[in-house]
Design a protein around this nucleic acid. Structure first.
Lengths: 152, 152
DNA sequence: GCCAGAAAGGTGCATATACTCGCAATTGCG
DNA sequence: CGCAATTGCGAGTATATGCACCTTTCTGGC
């Protein structure tokens, strides 16, 4: 069936990736639902926990996320008191930090998240999952540095 | 370095996938820019070309995309005349079809898209790309059927 | 010390995505 | 046939994402 694929170019790599992302996000969101967090929010909080208080743009770079998108993704988390944003020393910057409530939210969501992770690991097997992660890392490396795009 | 990963559970599979998707979408959107189409739009048109005129919900199922999201994704394409939506025989349904202009738009964007595909293939290598696609297919299979979620 | 340019963010706008609720057409059963 | 349940969509709302443009602040020459 798939033996007549000399090149994989018939399938759009990006379309495939996006479709799979929709599917997986759905799964995680479903499993995380009881925690009141979406995957993106949980992910954001977790990154913040790992990185510690960070400037807006730094966080955006780590997440390969547009600066302004990050800003808006933080909104509901700030509203719910999971995240605090204060001006940095350099008055141009904003420091994003995790609050106690934010840490608590992570702890509350973690068991659900682990269930989702386990389900995926069980479905794909550790080997495939590991090589997937590795490949995704390579894909992330293709991210064009903003500012390089127009600057040529 | 990665030898101390007994389980890959330290990394969130979904977060990784989403981050990589942002990166890759950016790459494709950049390359597709001269065509005036975004990757999502190109992808949608292409799927429509492959499937032929389809009902809204069928198309959404194929794309693993929420019905209402598809509807809104079609809006700009309808506005630009690339896609036409007409009522089906069953008056509840809507038939989505590709117009001549839509076919032309695909042809115009295809060379750019191929460049993006080639770039990814060159970067990852055919083997990894193929196994990525295969794994993504498995992930897509995890998509929870809407209506099964609440119905239990 | 002053100003030109760089750097960090925000706002407005457009698209992408999903859920809830509600309406209209259809279908199935008595 | 008549109506209840089902089905296919749309609209409203909320989040996710990125771009263009603007404001504020900082930095480097001079």
């Amino acid at each position: 069936m798939s033996s007549d694929h000399p090149t994989p170019l018939a399938a759009c790599a990006c379309g495939r990736l996006r479709r799979a992302t929709r599917a997986l996000t759905q799964l995680y969101d479903d499993v995380l639902a009881p925690s009141g967090l979406r995957l993106t929010q949980f992910s954001l909080l977790r990154t913040l926990a790992r990185e510690g208080t960070s400037r807006m743009s730094d966080l955006a770079n780590i997440l390969l996320l547009d600066r302004t998108a990050l800003s808006r993704n933080l909104d509901p988390l700030v509203l719910r008191g999971f995240v605090a944003i204060v001006p940095g020393r350099d008055a141009r910057t904003r420091e994003v930090s995790l609050t106690r409530a934010g840490e608590k939210a992570i702890r509350g969501a973690e068991p659900h998240w682990k269930r989702a992770q386990a389900r995926v690991a069980a479905e794909l097997g550790t080997t495939k999952l590991n090589s997937l992660i590795a490949t995704l890392r390579e894909i992330e490396a293709l991210h064009p540095d903003p500012g390089v795009r127009e600057g040529r």
